[in-house]
Amino acid sequence: MSIILAGVTAGYGRDRAIVENIDLEIRTGEVTVLIGPNGCGKSTLLKTIGRILKPRSGSIHVDDLDVLRNDPKRVARTIAYLPQSPVVPTAITVEQLVGYGRAPHQSLLGLRSAKDIELVDHAIATTGLEELRFKPVAELSGGQRQRAFIAMALAQDTPYVMLDEPTTFLDIRHQVETLDLVRQLHDAGRTSVVVLHDIAQAARYGDRLVVMHAGRLVAEGKPADVVTPELLREVYGLECEVYPDPVSGTPVVTPK
């Protein structure tokens, strides 16, 4: 039970590949965090896993499902993907947006079943959006919006959830709120892959870190094993000191 990538190479248009020859196993029941410097290919890798971007070569399997050779709707019932800054549709309420998460389970007309309604209600309750249910998404604050999109991914009811930098543009309180929600997904039995910039947050919220540099995987493992001054020098070109977080005990990084 896992997502297995073998020899995945991906890029945009005719340009040079962004990620090259990636072999990676994403284990079920863990929060995997992708980190790395800007432009290292972590978002591209996440898009490829979520089948938003078709790789040029390699294979992706989820359990027994060949992601690349399967009906997109079927894949969307297995993997949910949330882009870094999703388009906010005009004049759509929170409830409608969350309802779109049910699309892969519905027919062309998008008629809701009792189960659809139940899962939408549940997603709204989990993300604490009851009071904003009938508000247009465009009128929400950044943190509320992020919760609404995460609720949509929840309603999609997939065993795997991909989140691309869900904390960008949020203040620290909303960042923590969003990451707590990711842990909640984990506790509810979902496997998630999250792209994050903040190494301390990645170490604190991830069960497993995957570090990328220039389109390749350079390290993966438990946060305490991965986040070392040597790795930070190699990947970010920065001399740092690493010490345990006074609250969680996970590694925190301070540049020298």
């Binding site: 938003i52 894949v75 969307a76 993997i79 699309a103």
Partner: peptide
């Protein structure tokens, strides 16, 4: 209308 990435993610 949700944009290419989100719509693709929804199958």
């Amino acid at each position: 209308a949700l944009g290419e990435a989100t719509a693709t993610g929804l199958g």
